[in-house]
Nucleic acid binder design. Structure first.
Length: 638
RNA sequence: GCCGCGGUGGCUCAGCUGGUAGAGCGGCUCCUUGGUAAGGAGCAGGCCGAGGGUUCAAAUCCCUCCCGCGGCUCCA
């Protein structure tokens, strides 16, 4: 018997409830799951996100959203953005809100307003706190377009969004106290949900489009409670403490000076790590059939005209004029490899010809983009160019994807794949691009890895698969890359003689695995907080004689370790043992060997492993075997 | 490159409503020879990013430049 004043609501667990028409979503959910309903901040009504205050008019499927759900989290972030907008509008006369979406980390809101100052933010925070304490409801109103245009007459940005709402659809606005914002919604029920909202900072942004005025972006994060925010802030502070720029300076790995912005100095300890990374890659090259070459650092302009760099990359190149000729510092190794390949007749028997090159590259990166080791102007890639026949492309790329996996697993890094397709500025034939893109995508599918497609982000000469890793603050950085290139071989007129006696044009695969020593190390330092795996550690063992009387015995151990190519340091005895143990830990030394009366008497060492409290006694031979084995196997932990 | 914010001993930072520099860590010296995350004392070290300006007087206020930081844009 259907009762027009009642309707049926179904829930995710399969249960049904009959409620009065007009019952709010929140009330229905509370009836369904009273013990959990306090965590519900919005809901999905027939799959569509809605406010808890939404009245039910028809039979419906309802499922709750809480902060633990991605969609729920985004709703809270978006409500937090509104709260910031409210604070800005209340404290800065004439400020005009534009958009305030959630992001991966939190949210931002862009304003058309005079440049902000830290003092502005203090005032905004105070206004936000007041609103949170007042627990002001988010009240949805649906208004006509005309009404919306009247409400936002002073805000050209909102007027534009209103004009973009399809005809016939209602325009919704949300009132929070005296503040009204144009918004699709939904929102958390009231501002009391936002006690864990925190403004991270502000900056100017340049919106796209000509004549666009710079806007001020306020970024923040939101949590339902203060304590969850505190947990986040604690994690963030720990992440900041892993900043490779700080650790690199403290550990004396690298150095930057004002007179060479973006050009790193490798200090002795950093150089050790770079060389170890290089060895790691070299070992693979030897097994995988590569030859290493070195081509010039500078080429005359004409080479770059041939390669296309002059047209597509010149603004990123350092140029030098010598004897009235313009020379460009190479930003990539490819032109040199092309010239090398072309230098004599080539046979199909030589393919795949794998030429590796670890040469310094120079790129004129815009000053505002430089960032420690992760964005520099002089860099060395673990680069190679692989000349293949068309049929060999897939096999090579497949092998490379396997090697990338193996390499990144060694460092326990988390990485992701991105397929970048034809950009606006490109060389060659679109059909060829499509084919190359399809090849790469098929290989990604085949290797069963997740990947993202970035339309238009390919290199000007071909599509690519990029590998991204994130720094401690979650910012993504591109490291490895696999790029298919059908263009440079044509432009340089490369040919090889096939089995059929005809001349063919090879395809070139440009690829790096770790990317560049600079960026890779920057990310790796943050990943391990400077606690390098033993095989990379600049100092692998530090020997601490208990007193000066044990120094001679300690020197004997030092010699044994050094003879086994273990990087070893012998500490002095000026400081207390406890102090020296502490220093070794702070210096991130993987193994500390303490030698005193006991050890010298029975030929043992007292070994302390980085990151663990206690110490254990080993014979010298055991210790030597243990350390060299961990190093040889490139174990991640000591 | 764009916008904002910064730049003080090797490092981290205080001083910055103008009166001409401080701390901790680190370094050096001396005492202590200590058994697994800081033993004690003393000393040295800065033309306060650079250049102009305002002022009797500038680390402090103003301007320009350089470098850095956070975003934006762009890329390994």
């Amino acid at each position: 018997m259907a009762d027009a004043s009642r309707l049926t609501v179904s829930f995710p667990d399969g249960r049904h409830l009959t409620v009065d028409r007009g019952t709010s979503v929140g009330a229905a959910l509370a009836e369904w799951a009273p013990e959990r309903s306090a965590s519900f901040l919005a809901a999905l009504l027939n799959g569509r996100p809605v406010d808890l205050t939404t009245p039910l008019q028809h039979d419906a499927a309802l499922s709750p959203l809480s902060f633990a759900d991605r969609a729920g989290r985004e709703i809270l972030q978006h409500s937090a953005a509104h709260l910031v907008a409210k604070g800005i509008v209340e404290t800065i006369p004439g400020a005009r809100p534009t958009v305030g979406p959630p992001t991966d980390e939190g949210f931002y809101y862009d304003f058309d307003v005079r440049p902000l100052t830290p003092a502005d933010l203090d005032a905004v925070r105070a206004a936000m706190d007041r609103a949170v304490r007042a627990r002001e409801p988010y009240v949805r109103r649906e208004v006509s377009k005309a009404e919306a245009e009247r409400l936002f007459a002073a805000n050209p940005f909102k007027l534009r969004y209103i004009s973009e709402v399809p005809a016939g659809e209602p325009v919704s606005v949300y009132d929070t106290g005296a503040f009204t914002d144009l918004c699709r919604g939904p929102h958390v029920p009231h501002t009391g949900w936002l006690e864990g909202v925190h403004i991270l900072g502000f900056s100017a942004i340049t919106p796209e489009g000509e004549g666009a005025v710079p806007l001020q972006r306020v970024r923040g994060v939101g949590y339902p409670t203060r304590s969850e925010l505190d947990d986040y802030l604690k994690l963030r502070a720990e992440a900041e403490a892993r900043d490779h720029r700080t650790i690199g300076a403290k550990q004396e790995l690298f150095l930057f000076v004002d007179e060479a912005p973006g050009f790193p100095f490798w200090l002795p300890k950093g150089m050790i790590v770079v060389r170890e990374l290089e060895k790691f890659v070299q070992e693979h090259l030897a097994k995988a059939g590569y030859s290493e070459v070195r081509t010039p650092l500078l080429f005359a302009q004409s080479v770059y005209e041939t390669s296309g760099h002059w047209e597509h990359y010149r603004e990123n190149m350092f140029l030098s004029t010598v004897e009235n000729r313009v020379f460009g510092w190479k930003p990539m190794n490819c032109p040199g490899s092309m010239l090398l390949f072309r230098s004599r007749a080539r046979s199909y028997r030589e393919l795949p010809l794998r030429l590796a090159e670890f040469a310094p590259l120079h790129r004129l990166e815009a000053s505002g983009t430089l960032h420690g080791l992760t964005r520099v102007r002089e860099l060395v890639q673990d680069d190679a160019h692989i000349f293949v026949s068309e049929e060999q492309v897939a096999g090579e790329v497949r092998t490379l994807l396997e090697w990338i996996r193996e390499a990144f697993l060694t460092f326990r890094l988390r990485w992701s794949y991105e397929l970048s397709t034809r950009p606006a500025k490109f060389l060659g034939d679109p059909a060829e691009w499509d084919r190359a893109e399809a090849t790469l995508e098929a290989l990604l599918k085949e290797s069963k890895v997740g990947y993202r497609v970035s339309p238009g982000e390919g290199a000007f000469y071909g599509p690519k698969i990029d590998i991204h890793v994130r720094d401690s603050l979650g910012r993504p950085w591109q490291t490895g890359t696999i790029q298919l290139d059908y263009q440079l071989p044509l432009r340089f007129g490369l040919e090889y003689q096939g089995a059929d006696g005809q001349l063919h044009t090879p395809v070139v695969v440009h690829r790096t695995i770790l990317g560049t020593w600079e960026r890779f190390l920057g990310v790796l330092i943050e990943h391990c907080a400077g606690r390098f795996p033993p095989w990379l550690a600049p100092v692998q063992v530090r020997i601490l004689p208990v007193t000066e009387q044990h120094a001679t015995g300690a020197r004997g151990l030092e010699e044994e370790l050094r003879a086994a190519s273990v990087r070893t340091e012998l500490a002095g005895t000026e400081e207390s043992l406890a102090k020296r143990v502490r220093s070794a830990e702070l210096d991130r030394i993987p193994y500390v060997a303490v030698l005193g009366d006991r050890e010298l008497a029975d030929g043992t060492v007292s070994v302390r492993v980085r990151g663990s409290k206690g110490n254990r006694s080993m014979s010298r031979g055991e210790f030597l075997g243990y350390v060299t084995d961990r190093i040889r196997r490139r174990e991640f932990d000591p």
